[in-house]
């Protein structure tokens, strides 16, 4: 397991790029070159997906806004006590989207909310995919009763209504951002686990796995050095798709009042707006932006995910 895998020390393949230092190539440099090459190939293919490019552009923009929130709207815009405006003001030059029931600028809250939504979405998706990959690889690698039990559990989670389970978890735990992340991550992993297991089975049936085993590679070595790199592209595409549903679930939980009420998130803003009577008062400028923001981010991640998926598997027939 600890030994360097023999395959990396093999002579370079014929398809190597023109080398600058062909003589002094360490296995590490070879690997880096190969990865760079496949990335370039991936990007060339990805570039042809117009919707994927739109999604990527939107994501970069939103991420920049979220990162620069303190610079853009000021660090104190979430404060309830020294809010700059009157409660529930209409849109004006000073407050382009009006104010909330505490007199805070809705636009500023929207910018701050991007941070929570993105953080929760990314972390929850990461947790979900990590659990799913672990279970998938283990269930695909080990056969026998252990794998059977794992897959039974996966199937059981798969048919559970995800949102109900997440709500149940969020209800019994403390109201915090971490609860939401945990609730989403723990309830959404089975799809990933099934995908990864299918891929693991396909990879493990190849002769080079048998070769690695014959050379004395243990379970850990095979799973980490051979199977994992081969399921990674699939896992990446899956992560992108999971993020968008995680962001939607986060906003749902926040809307139902199951998130930390002290942090500003888009779902929480919608809950605030509803409780403050923005619906019956017809204050659409308070309600519309957070939902549009959620939809925009979720859509951007979905577009990216579908583009990645179709680069990896052109048979899916995704419109460009």
């Amino acid at each position: 397991m600890t030994a360097e895998p023999p395959m990396t020390t093999q002579p370079p393949r014929t398809a190597e790029p023109p080398a600058k230092a062909a003589a002094a190539r360490s296995p590490r440099a070879l690997k880096a070159a190969r990865m760079r090459q496949s990335f370039v190939r991936f990007w060339k293919e990805y570039r042809t997906h117009r919707s994927g490019l739109w999604g990527l552009g939107a994501l970069v923009l939103i991420a920049l806004i979220a990162l620069a929130a303190p610079l853009l709207v000021g660090a104190d815009s979430e404060s309830v006590t020294d809010a700059p405006g009157l409660p529930m003001e209409d849109p004006s030059g000073e407050f382009p989207l009006g104010t909330d029931q505490f007199g805070r600028s809705v636009l500023a809250l929207l910018v701050w909310g991007a941070r929570v939504s993105l953080t929760v979405g990314l972390l929850a998706a990461f947790l979900c995919v990590a659990i799913g990959t672990l279970v998938g690889i283990v269930a695909g690698h080990f056969k026998g009763w252990f794998a059977t039990v794992l897959m039974r559990i996966t199937d059981w989670f798969l048919v559970m209504p995800t949102l109900v389970l997440a709500i149940a978890l969020a209800t019994v735990m403390d109201r915090s951002m971490w609860t939401v992340i945990l609730a989403i991550g723990v309830t959404t992993w089975p799809t990933t686990a099934r995908l990864v297991r299918a891929q693991t089975l396909a990879v493990e049936s190849r002769p080079y796995i048998e070769r690695a085993r014959a050379l004395g590679g243990g379970h850990g070595h095979i799973m980490l050095r051979h199977v994992l790199p081969n399921v990674m592209p699939l896992v990446l595409a899956q992560t992108t798709l999971v993020i968008s549903s995680a962001i939607l679930t986060e906003s749902t939980l926040a809307f139902l009042g199951l998130s930390d009420p002290t942090i500003t998130s888009w779902g929480g803003m919608l809950q605030d707006a509803r409780e403050a009577g923005a619906v019956s008062a017809g204050h659409w400028w308070y309600l519309a932006p957070p939902g549009l923001a959620i939809a925009a981010v979720a859509l951007a991640f979905t577009l990216c995910g579908r583009a990645v998926e179709s680069v990896l598997n052109p048979r899916l027939g995704v419109a460009r």
Partner: peptide, 26 residues
């Protein structure tokens, strides 16, 4: 494109918006 967009929309928000536009009136 339309289906993907609607798929990304939170259902509760769409509901609230429909109420504002068609029940309360804008």
């Amino acid at each position: 494109a339309l289906a993907l967009t609607l798929y990304s929309v939170p259902s509760f928000w769409l509901g609230l918006l429909l109420i504002i536009v068609f029940s309360v009136g804008v």
